[in-house]
Nucleic acid binder design. Sequence first.
DNA 1: TCCCCTGGCACATTTGAATCGC
DNA 2: AGCGATTCAAATGTGCCAGGGG
Length: 547
Amino acid sequence: MLQEKASVVTDDSVTGAQTEGPPELVPNPSHLTLPTTPSIPQGNEPNQNIESIKVLLHERELWKKFHEAGTEMIITKAGRRMFPSYKVKVTGMNPKTKYILLTDIVPADDHRYKFCDNKWMVAGKAEPAMPGRLYVHPDSPATGAHWMRQLVSFQKLKLTNNHLDPFGHIILNSMHKYQPRLHIVKADENNAFGSKNTAYCTHVFHETAFISVTSYQNHKITQLKIENNPFAKGFRGSDEGDLRVSRLQGKDYPVISKNMVRQRLISSHSHLAGKLGAGVLTGHPQVLSHYQYESGVPLSNSDHQDHLSNPFPPSREPGLLYHCFKHRDNTRHLELGCKRPYLETAPPAAPEDHYFRSAPSYEPPLLSHPYCGETLSSREACMYGSMEGESGAGPGGAEDLTPPSLNMWASVQPYPRYSMQTVDTVPYQPFTAHFTSTATATSVVPHHSASMAPRPQSDLGLYSPASAQRGLTAIPSTSSSSSSSPLVAGSRDRVAHPPLYHRKPGSPLRPHRDFSAFPTQTGSSIRDPSYQYQMGLSTVGAHWTES
DNA sequence: TCCCCTGGCACATTTGAATCGC
DNA sequence: AGCGATTCAAATGTGCCAGGGG
């Protein structure tokens, strides 16, 4: 069984926390343990431990604007990018140490919402969480110098409501509230993580929380998107949008759309989208108890409460929550191959990103295959699906809900409450997202691989559309463009499309990466007092290996 | 009937290949 | 022949809207 110990080093000046061990996938959660006392980081660079890493949210003011209005993110079957995009500035890393940066999006609570009277209101219990997936920054693993050199952008991350999404996009439920998180994992000596003593930390910016929708509900949000998103320029100009419509319809007078009318009527009703949450999100009061920071300053309890209870407080300063823990034991066994979550569908045309799907977490393979990859072949973002077996607790209960053959992902649990308590007594709350260990029994196949036939679940794991596009199937790829930094703001999102992740067992020519699950919290709501730390970040067992 | 989702549309930006000039 | 700058078409990302399904 896997035993985990978490440790946290808190420092008012630090926005990150350190863990001495990698998040691990816990086959048997009941055995998961966390230290009750902070431990001393054991990194090789005493002054450059993970706890000293600081992360600043880029365009924080913009995020705050959205947050105050109640951020909404469109989710579509094909996948939709987030706007504002998730970009961060990282400092405090050891320039020579290699890190892996990844993000995931977890339920902020266990409610379903509806937009009524110009505000979001709870409409019921949340639907089962979607399969948790992780989006690994394409540059990973890279040195601290690389990450700190420029902004780290996750703008290519896409959200979808397609439960069977073959592209590796992050799957969400519409009308639910979510919280993006950033994980920084220190790559081990093998440029992997998931092995013993791998350190990692998680950063949460509350202003990035959002409610997923299939069409915008709050006109205020629509306007903010149009005003700030370059791709929406065509809709800019106060009421020009209406004018455009009128032109399109051959009319010389503005046409007010139904939606516009509705929105405006609603707006006149209440000026506050920002207050929407009042009483609605009663939230996870204790979730942030230990590691919540606001601009580096720990938030007061009341603040926590407020943050949590109201997803979109009018003028809330974004708080940063982080936690970390050290992986002490690496006893996980990779007994189950990765399973393909879906893939009954035709292969994507040619997604530029590479995605990893997590294997079923019944026996989450994790550490045996550390995430290794000095040269991430593609330097492209990767999606990891969590295969955590849903414990049935919390929305989801993947085990019960997902047919093994179709979708082995576990549901994502609501944003967890982070605490450093020992979790031995806490029932395992399967988290969902974790790296797939593809190297072992699983092979990674591009979704649109040659055959496109549904992959066996054991095959689930890495996915490289690009490689497939190039006819490179079943080949673990190395980074073809190791120098590129596709997701770095300011630079083009160049994606090297390395063929990666199509792991062909025994392929001697290309390095393959294995990813163990990076357990995300699932099950209990953030508010759930019983929700313990381990839920927050489960295991990161991914691991690249170079041939 | 209402709410939510889907697919298609037009527009703007981004991307990358092709072309040109030095 | 090599390199960099420019051009241009295709791809991609937007929000809007009509229509459909539960």
